[in-house]
Design a protein around this nucleic acid. Structure first.
Ligand SMILES: [Mn+2]
Ligand SMILES: [Mn+2]
Ligand SMILES: [Mn+2]
Ligand SMILES: [Mn+2]
Lengths: 224, 224
DNA sequence: ATTTTTTTTTAGATTTGTCTAAATATAATT
DNA sequence: AATTATATTTAGACAAATCTAAAAAAAAAT
């Protein structure tokens, strides 16, 4: 019931990579964890022995129910700590990921449940990602990439899928954050850039890459 | 500038054992860290290479200025986290030590400085021990063991030197906490037990062992 | 159906932190 | 001073997590 920080990082990475329920490749994991494919193979064998994942040589990997459960608890801890750092210690949302990467491995579940309560049981972290509850259930927030947002449709940013400092830096520059309301004015076919407008601010243009990593929610009820 | 949790634990243990400036023995360290003498020797050699301590085979060990600096930062983190757990998350003072033992190894100094500020720059932890500041200076609180408290002298508990769950459990039973005002009514020569009185509570008796681990402050100005 | 390329696994080392058992140094006793 | 007891260090192993280089399997291209 207690795993090393390294093992926890593996489980979390696999969880994130197997979006739906597809298998995850050794190379994809190596890239994500910034390690060699050989190290990944070594670790997968150990995690398999512990029945945290299904793994057949050359066939990729997928978490068992138990593996998912562990991964979700780590994700819960990660996101609650991120929320704490931003809301209570006034950190910027672009600097908390790294610190939470360490804090997520503190083992006490009593600690994390008290922290959850202290923070007022937040539903999403500073990046708009949902926080699993103590039982590990996490609401499936259905989100649309900005790429797919209809033109002139008002929408609110609910999460960002890339959380690199570089990307968060760019978002700050454009005054985009979780909750920001915006609309796509038009798409330029030549380079797929988008012109964006935020109420009471000058319009500006963003790249296709940025748009692909910005997720929004918008009113889908058809106005009669 | 970055050391493993294990190394940090060694530095902290040596710091606590070398009260004044005396050398610390291999066995004392092994006992404190709940490990074998052989492991201690192994580690001392590594820490010496990193110039964190002075060590000559069979001659014991003592921290260098650098070693002390590192130890004090760990102690700072440990005590600030303990304060956070008790004051913000409503933990009992007897359950926080273990969790802080993990939290003290989170590396971000920005985090600990923000936490310090968020907590209102507390001067002592829940056990009455002083919290070193960001520069590592810690006020030398002069404290007297209950063993040496003159009879009938009113005093206030300021710290406990043993923080085992067993001891803190006993303290709770006797309604003794940091700040509790008490006096020694008399000493029984036969077994060195002490009769204690706390205002508005029935008197009770404590063992020599408990008394030795309870530290108090009292008015030393001579009443003319 | 071969050949070539890409992906993945194995082989063999390395580092960190730990252990037990045996050897040696120091301290205490006779 | 010699002996006994205690403290400490060395020798040799082990588990976890990682690496590089080489081998093997799978996928893609000819
Ligand atoms: Mn992590
Ligand atoms: Mn996040
Ligand atoms: Mn510790
Ligand atoms: Mn304390």
């Amino acid at each position: 019931m207690k795993y090393s920080p390294s093992k926890e990082n593996y489980l979390k990475a696999i969880f994130h990579l197997q979006q739906d329920d597809s298998v995850v490749s050794t190379n994809a994991l190596a890239r994500q964890l910034n390690t060699s494919a050989a190290s990944v193979t070594d670790m997968l064998k150990k995690l398999k022995t512990q029945k945290l994942l299904q793994y057949q040589p050359y066939r990729g990997v997928r978490l068992t129910a138990e593996g998912k459960k562990v991964a979700l608890q780590i994700i819960r801890k990660h996101r609650l700590w991120e929320y704490f750092l931003v809301e209570k210690l006034a950190f910027g949302w672009e600097e908390v990921h790294e610190i939470a990467e360490e804090l997520e491995h503190i083992s006490s579940t009593k600690l994390i449940d008290r922290l959850d309560h202290f923070l007022g049981n937040p539903r999403t972290d500073p990046h708009g990602d949902p926080i699993p509850d103590a039982q590990g259930s996490m609401p499936l927030v259905q989100q649309t990439s900005l790429i797919d947002l209809p033109v002139r449709k008002q929408a609110a940013v609910i999460s960002v899928s890339n959380q690199s400092t570089a990307m968060l830096d760019l978002l700050k520059h454009h005054h985009i954050g979780i909750g920001t309301k915006l609309a796509v004015n038009r798409r330029f076919e030549f380079d797929q850039t988008l012109e964006i407008s935020i109420p009471n601010r000058p319009v500006f243009t963003i790249s296709e890459l940025l748009a692909a990593n910005l997720f929004v929610a918008y009113d889908t009820t058809t106005t009669a």
